[in-house]
C-alpha cells in the first residue's frame, strides 16, 4: 500500500516536471485552454469593474481637496497643448509632403502609425511570481502576442498569451533577463532619441527599479531624463514612457557598457482601463 502511494507520487512528480518543461516553450494556447480562459474571463468581468468603480468612488472622495490644484495644473497643460497643436498640424503636413517628395515606401510611412485599442482589465493573478493581468480583448479583436500594453502614464506590460475573447498581459515588473522566456525593451531618452540607447530587461523586485543595461560609454544620459521606448525592435512602437533615470550610468558587467537604474512611471496597481498598442505592420517581429 505504502509502495503504491510512493509510486504514484513519483509518477506525479515526473508528470509535473514534464508539464512544466512542455509549457515553458513559447507556445500558442490550445482550444480547451482558450475556452476555459474566455469563459472565466466572462465571469470575472462582471466583478472586477464594479468593484473598481466603488473603490474609485471612495478614492475620489479622499482626493476632493487636491482637485483645485489639479484643475489649475490641467488648465496650464491645456493651454500649452492648444499652442503645440497648431505647431503640430503645420509640421505634420510638412512631414507628409517631405515623405512624398523623398518617395517613402508604404512600409516606412506606416512605421509610426499606431492604433490604440481600449481594453478593460478583468482580473489580476494571485500568484506572487506570476502577476499576470487578464484583459477583455482577444485574437477576435486583433490582439497578437508581444503587443505593448500602456496606460495614460506609460508602458505597463506585454501581451503574453492570446485567447479568442481575452488575453493575458505580463506586467513589465516581472521582466528578468535570466528567466527562461526573457523579453527586453530597447529604450532611449526623450529629447535625445538619436544619442541615447539602453536595454531594459530586468526589474529588481527588492527595490522596485528597472535595470537599464548596455548604455554606450559616451552616452549623454543624466539623472531625471525620461526613458521612452525607442521602437528599434519593431515590436514596441516609439515613444511609450517607461520611467525616469534615477542614477548616473555606472560601469557595467565588463566595463564596456554602462548600467543605470530607472524608476517606473506607470502605476501597476488597481488598473481598470488599459490600451493595447497595435502597429500597422506587426507581423514577423520578435522582441
Amino acid at each position: 500500500m505504502r509502495n503504491k502511494r510512493l509510486f504514484f507520487l513519483m509518477i506525479g512528480l515526473i508528470l509535473f516536471i514534464a508539464v512544466i518543461g512542455f509549457s515553458l516553450r513559447d507556445r500558442q494556447l490550445s482550444a480547451p485552454e482558450k475556452f476555459v480562459n474566455d469563459s472565466v474571463a466572462y465571469v470575472q468581468q462582471w466583478l472586477y469593474k464594479p468593484a473598481g468603480y466603488i473603490a474609485g468612488f471612495f478614492e475620489d472622495i479622499g482626493n476632493i481637496r487636491s482637485l483645485q490644484e489639479e484643475n489649475e495644473q490641467l488648465r496650464t497643460t491645456a493651454a500649452a497643448y492648444a499652442r503645440d497643436k497648431i505647431k503640430y498640424n503645420v509640421i505634420e503636413k510638412q512631414n507628409a509632403q517631405l515623405e512624398r517628395d523623398l518617395k517613402f515606401t508604404e512600409r516606412q510611412r506606416q512605421l509610426n502609425d499606431y492604433q490604440y485599442l481600449i481594453a478593460q482589465v478583468v482580473s489580476v493573478s494571485s500568484d506572487p511570481y506570476n502577476p499576470t493581468i487578464k484583459i477583455d480583448l482577444g485574437s477576435e479583436n486583433g490582439i497578437k502576442e508581444n503587443m505593448a500594453v500602456v496606460t495614460v502614464d506609460g508602458l505597463i506590460g506585454i501581451v503574453s498569451k492570446v485567447s479568442a475573447f481575452s488575453s493575458n498581459v505580463e506586467p513589465i515588473t516581472s521582466l528578468d533577463e535570466k528567466s527562461p522566456n526573457s523579453k527586453s525593451i530597447s529604450v532611449t531618452v526623450l529629447g535625445r532619441e538619436n544619442d541615447s540607447f539602453g536595454i531594459i530587461a530586468t526589474y529588481d523586485q527588492e527595490n522596485g527599479r528597472f535595470e537599464m543595461t548596455r548604455i554606450p560609454e559616451n552616452d549623454p544620459m543624466i539623472v531625471g531624463d525620461t526613458v521612452i521606448t525607442s521602437g528599434l525592435g519593431r515590436v514596441f512602437p516609439r515613444g511609450l514612457v517607461v520611467g525616469t533615470v534615477e542614477t548616473t550610468p555606472q560601469a557595467g558587467d565588463f566595463g564596456l557598457t554602462k548600467v543605470a537604474s530607472v524608476k517606473p512611471q506607470a502605476d501597476f496597481n488597481r488598473l481598470t482601463e488599459v490600451f493595447v498598442v497595435k502597429m500597422a505592420d506587426n507581423e514577423g517581429g520578435t522582441p
Partner: peptide, 15 residues
C-alpha cells in the same frame, strides 16, 4: 489557476 493565469509555466498550482 494555472490555465487562467498562464504566463510562463503550467502545472505548478495543480501539483
Amino acid at each position: 489557476q494555472d490555465v487562467v493565469f498562464y504566463g510562463s509555466l503550467l502545472g505548478l498550482h495543480t501539483f
